[in-house]
């Protein structure tokens, strides 16, 4: 059974595209057929983060408007063979995407893939609403920071009212992916903690991704972190989140919870 998952947040710059690429690659590496779809028309970036920016010929709008076949527009990943990308259009204006067109593309993708990950643009405009429109599930990407949490709350409201599933009276599963988390700062009371964000947004937790230098390194070279640095802390956190998305039960570790220098010295002495 095919699952359509929207990766959304409301606020920009919180890690939607990075997370779409990382989760998509992790799901594909576990043997799933995965397509990551960029809905950010005019400001596409998933192709760049995936390292496929020079291979884009046809895009989502071409397929939605019937100017190209889906098979012509899908870009097969060179590292993971079960992973494909459908890029957004860089030149057309964002109103070029029609709901009927997106409905047709998503329906066709369902027939070809186990997971379709829709990378939503920021904001609550047409592109963001179309990205979530046909989703079965949502990953809400949030930073432990007031403006991100507020915008995520708004997006959760839209997921519950503007998606096709919600309109048909079904529940849409929403899970929180807390990104750029710094356990040290949270423990010192400088940053909202995991429990704080969970209590405020009251949706289940999909994963906690630590603030990590590896993320930038991965996007620099155009490889999802779950391919480029799968064993790094952030890479492992994304792997765990992907396994939870597949329905596995994986213990939730708070990444980067470092022992203080004093504890480390004492710990070493005791050992």
């Amino acid at each position: 059974m095919s699952k359509v998952v929207v990766v959304t947040s409301g606020k920009g710059g919180v890690g939607k595209t990075t997370s779409t690429a990382a989760l998509g690659a992790a799901l594909a590496r576990s043997g799933n057929r995965v397509c990551v779809v960029d809905f950010d028309v005019g400001l596409r970036n998933l192709d760049l983060v995936m390292g496929a920016e020079r291979r884009v010929v046809y895009d989502l709008i071409n397929v939605a408007n019937g100017d190209a076949k889906l098979a012509q527009a899908l870009i097969r990943d060179k590292r993971v063979e079960t992973l494909s990308l459908l890029a957004a259009s860089q030149t057309r204006d964002k109103d070029a995407l029609s709901e009927e067109g997106v409905a047709r593309v998503v329906a066709e993708l369902r027939g070809l893939f186990d997971y379709v990950l829709c990378d939503s643009p920021a904001g609550i405009e047409r592109g963001a609403l179309l990205a979530m429109r046909f989703a079965d599930e949502a990953v809400v990407v949030t930073n432990p920071e007031v403006s991100s949490v507020r915008d995520s709350d708004r997006i959760i409201g839209l997921l519950d009212s503007k998606t096709l599933r919600a309109e048909q009276g079904h529940r849409i599963q929403k899970q929180l992916l807390l990104t750029r988390f710094d356990a040290g700062r949270a423990s010192r009371g400088e940053m909202l903690g995991v429990a704080d964000v969970l209590e405020i947004l009251s949706i289940p937790l999909l994963g906690i991704i630590p603030e990590s230098e590896e993320i930038l390194r991965a996007s620099n070279v155009g490889a999802p972190i779950t391919i480029n640095a799968a064993t790094s802390q952030a890479g492992r956190s994304y792997e765990d989140a992907a396994r939870r998305l597949m329905g596995e039960t994986v213990p939730m570790l708070v990444p980067g919870e470092k022992k203080s220098l004093l504890n480390r010295i004492l710990g070493r002495r005791a050992a």
Binding site: R150, E190, I200
Partner: peptide, 11 residues
């Protein structure tokens, strides 16, 4: 002073 509780309450 911890600012996270302030953020939490404001939100």
């Amino acid at each position: 002073a911890a600012t996270a509780p302030v953020a939490r309450e404001r939100l």
